[in-house]
Design a protein around this nucleic acid. Structure first.
Lengths: 200, 200
DNA sequence: ACTTTACTTGACACTATGTAAACTGGCCTC
DNA sequence: GAGGCCAGTTTACATAGTGTCAAGTAAAGT
């Protein structure tokens, strides 16, 4: 991360570059190459360095852009408004598949760069910590409603929920096994409800 | 993949290079660099190309080496010899944490290269297909014993078991959340038993 | 003595990231 | 309307890592 990136704010060129990057990682399955981005955005390769400092800066900007377009806040509110635990877990899994589906392209890039680049690694780590806290809050809500099975303490249930809702599980089911998103939602919801909720 | 790699069999140098590679990816957290491997193994960089063709060939050899040292066959037999479904799932999760713990270093390398290299991608894919079939067989065994909950059909239960036993789930719990392997085994076993097995 | 084997050495091409410097067209201001 | 700044461009170059090629060499086999 170079600290000398001029803050051009929301320049047109900057948006152009971000859009081109997104198109590339969404369609083409290779890793993001700056020359390709520049060509696609119809700017010089150096323009990317002016706006983002380096490759990691561009990817970081993609992640932040993703955060904004995702609008997680309101969607999470809808999940939390569920009347009972089963509905809560169902809505959570529905949002989860939307989330991973949207994040999929950039998640692949981040995963690949995680070994080399500390900035990207911590950007990913931060987001995952947020996810973990979100799932913990959901489990607390279920526990407060008296619906959490006594087999589980809150922390352990939250950890298991967070981990099973993670990227690999979603990707293996929807991509490797070819399940539809609906099937993912239904099966994972059943798994979690049976495992975590008190038996009536 | 170059097809003109001479089959030196089990040469000393080859083993040296593999061991050096393993040491590097196990300790150092960066991605495997051929110059480093050569230095560590005290051979010339070109020797690596003689033995493995290219970088992908080396990684592939690491994967196969891993397969051999892992001795999955006998360990799987022990899992399958479990007297009931709960014990089977418990043993499966115990083996699972051993598996991911051993595979962890090479899994990171493979994950990073999966976007670029088709050979590595399919090598990984093959292993995961094997895993999936193994878990499917376990579920069939449970179903044959009449222990599978009627909420699940065999394919769906196997898919969910396979996916939740995947790398991310293990890594997030043991690394991101800092759980011990024992805690992983206990929690995941509880999750799967409650979710998949018939309620007594 | 010769060939083969299993390497080494050194040179080179290619790709990708990153840096530096000089130039250009448009806009703003004095 | 001349000068200055801005947001880029072009060109050049440095560096790292992968992969290729050709020539050399020391030891073992025949």
């Amino acid at each position: 991360m170079s600290s000398k990136v001029p803050d051009y704010g929301s320049s047109q060129t900057r948006e152009h570059i971000l859009k081109a990057s997104w198109d590339l990682i969404a369609n083409h399955e290779s890793s993001l190459k700056l020359t390709e981005v520049a060509t696609k955005a119809a700017v010089s390769r150096q323009a990317i360095y002016l706006h983002f400092g380096d490759r990691a800066g561009l990817v970081l900007a993609l992640v932040q852009h993703m955060d904004e377009t995702l609008d997680l806040g309101s969607k999470l509110a809808h999940v939390r408004a569920a009347p009972d635990g089963a509905e809560l877990l169902g809505r959570a899994m529905r949002l989860n598949t939307q989330f991973w589906s949207a994040v999929f392209p950039v998640a692949r890039i981040l995963e690949a760069a995680q070994n080399d680049d500390a900035a990207l690694s911590s950007a990913w780590h931060d987001r995952m910590t947020f996810r973990q806290k979100t799932f913990l809050a959901m489990i607390k809500q279920i526990a407060d409603g008296g619906e959490l099975s006594p087999d589980w303490d809150i922390e352990e249930a939250a950890g298991v929920l967070y981990a099973t809702a993670h990227f690999d599980t979603w990707r293996e089911l929807t991509h490797h096994l070819g399940w539809t998103e609906d099937r993912y939602v239904v099966a994972m919801t059943r798994l979690l409800c049976r495992a975590l909720l008190r038996r009536s």
